[in-house]
Write a protein that binds this DNA or RNA. Sequence first.
DNA 1: CATGTAAATACAATCGATTGTATTTGAGCT
DNA 2: AGCTCAAATACAATCGATTGTATTTACATG
Lengths: 341, 341
Amino acid sequence: MKKGQITIHDIARHLSLDSSTISRALNDSPRVTAKTKEKVRKVASELGYRPNLMATGLRTQRSKTIGVIVPWISRHFFSSAISGIEQVVYKEGYHVIICQSHDNYKREVSNTFALFDNRVEGVLASVAMDTTKFDHLTQIKDENIPIVFFDRYPPGVSACRVVIDDFKAAYQVTEHLISQGHRRIAHFSGPRNLNIYRDRFDGYKKALKDHNLVMDPTMVFESRLLPDDGIEGIKYLLSLPDLPDALFCSNDLTALSAMQYLQKDGSFSVPDDMAIAGFSNSPSTSIIKPGLTTVDQSGEEIGKAAAKRLIAEIRGETDRGMNEVITIDTQLIVRGSSCRK
Amino acid sequence: MKKGQITIHDIARHLSLDSSTISRALNDSPRVTAKTKEKVRKVASELGYRPNLMATGLRTQRSKTIGVIVPWISRHFFSSAISGIEQVVYKEGYHVIICQSHDNYKREVSNTFALFDNRVEGVLASVAMDTTKFDHLTQIKDENIPIVFFDRYPPGVSACRVVIDDFKAAYQVTEHLISQGHRRIAHFSGPRNLNIYRDRFDGYKKALKDHNLVMDPTMVFESRLLPDDGIEGIKYLLSLPDLPDALFCSNDLTALSAMQYLQKDGSFSVPDDMAIAGFSNSPSTSIIKPGLTTVDQSGEEIGKAAAKRLIAEIRGETDRGMNEVITIDTQLIVRGSSCRK
DNA sequence: CATGTAAATACAATCGATTGTATTTGAGCT
DNA sequence: AGCTCAAATACAATCGATTGTATTTACATG
């Protein structure tokens, strides 16, 4: 019953050595003979010794843990990003504590504190839609915990971020729609307090302007971009006196649901009656017919870049600027949903 | 620079009290006056005190952490399961360390040790395709760390598991295909060392048998069920002298890629030339045209059930049997891909 | 053989919180 | 005032590992 875990003291007892020698032996310190190290390692593996990371972390003040906050784990972009993060930090001997905010401010705050309580050595975060106050994030910085944002970042928090050029990508999408002959281009936007949706909106506007089209604010529908919002949005557009001939959605989720809604009774054709484009290149976009034009944004690559940068900051190798912006390339993926036959 | 974290000792100094009193005050012990508790809480929040979970964990031997091992975070089923897990454990004051095995045995082993090193209080695992030895998992059990498997479980490890009835679900799918008039039903199977693929295969065979159809082993294609395997599988089937008239795939990934391959030049019609069914009800199955018949298997529900059960075991509330099998309901989702017009 | 010196190892404090035991405080009573 | 007794708080050990300092060991040298 008294089945405690094996500690360095147990090894020490077996070898009539002091626990400090065991510790040094296991950490390959030059202060211990090769012969002793050998003996220690042998006994350690015989006893099935495994270090207690809580003890090590407490003593060394390094938890070997990094915290990740994302809105939704199960969104393809974020789970890919986490996958990328995990691959990078795993190699460096770190592990990852994952929290999801459900796009909710209060949960994001409590996640942030939970990560701090665990004394994570760094944080990777993509902020929630609801987040408009950022004290919890600045506090993390103030505690000297490096934080790197990816995809969604808060204004005014001085930190590095890994992003894509949302403005440019949205510009390209819009320009592509224009090049296909569309003139009345609608837009589904997300909450403008988030950089990504603001930038995508701005890119859309700029493209229209550069091609001498006037942006019609009645054709811009703002929502939280959940699947149902796509349906609500397309219903709204269909109720307009002058129908748009194209639609650029700020994410794939709404593009897909809007497109399915349009196609469901066969009376409406995509792209002939309305061209559609989305954003993120999530798996379903290549499966829907016609394929959904979208922007490829590799979650995995973004996650990897953010993790690498964070580890560099943890190590104090911040050679590049403190608030560096790392931009990952995107690619416009043109598929049938936007192409005039 | 010397910006150490705030500890209970700092609070103690501020109030000329002992740190033990602070600890008891913050833990609402009856041994401290209400008045003192009030003062302690006030100073604690003024100083921005946050408990160090490594210290607490070391002392109490309870890390408030549970470990999760999945093959791939970014697979919809698993990210949904993680989402469910996270929701449950979060409420109980636990957090989650996530590892992915990439369906690789060695990584799964090293993940397992990493979780042990962190002294997780419990483990939720879905084993890798490559895993045929299970010592690492039995060791965890032997260390008295509760482990609950979900979806994929190893044979011979005595532990609770949360699963679906793969046999029954596969039987239903096959029977449905038969009811649609299909007689030559092919099957894409996964590695048979995994319960889920073995059971799905068995359910398929039993349904055929019960309907007086003979299973033709040349129509069973075994692979690791990645998208490319679906293409390879369908090419193989197309090369057979007698084409199958239906195909039941052990996962959606291969069903989708096979279906897209068949449809790509328009010469082949699904379901008329070949009916197809998949397994898992991943998002794309409702987007492809025709919709893919599949089995709904709620990752979130499975994750929640597994997490609840694990927490019960951690708490020692194992009223139900030690090796209980919790079966989550599935639902056959019939869509166009399998229905005779 | 005594001694100096470097190598090898032991001792002890520490990280931050918890907890069993010991001590102090103060109210109530004679 | 002296005393009791319970309430409130202080003391000190502990969790497992690390690390600066002290001590022992062993070998070489005069």
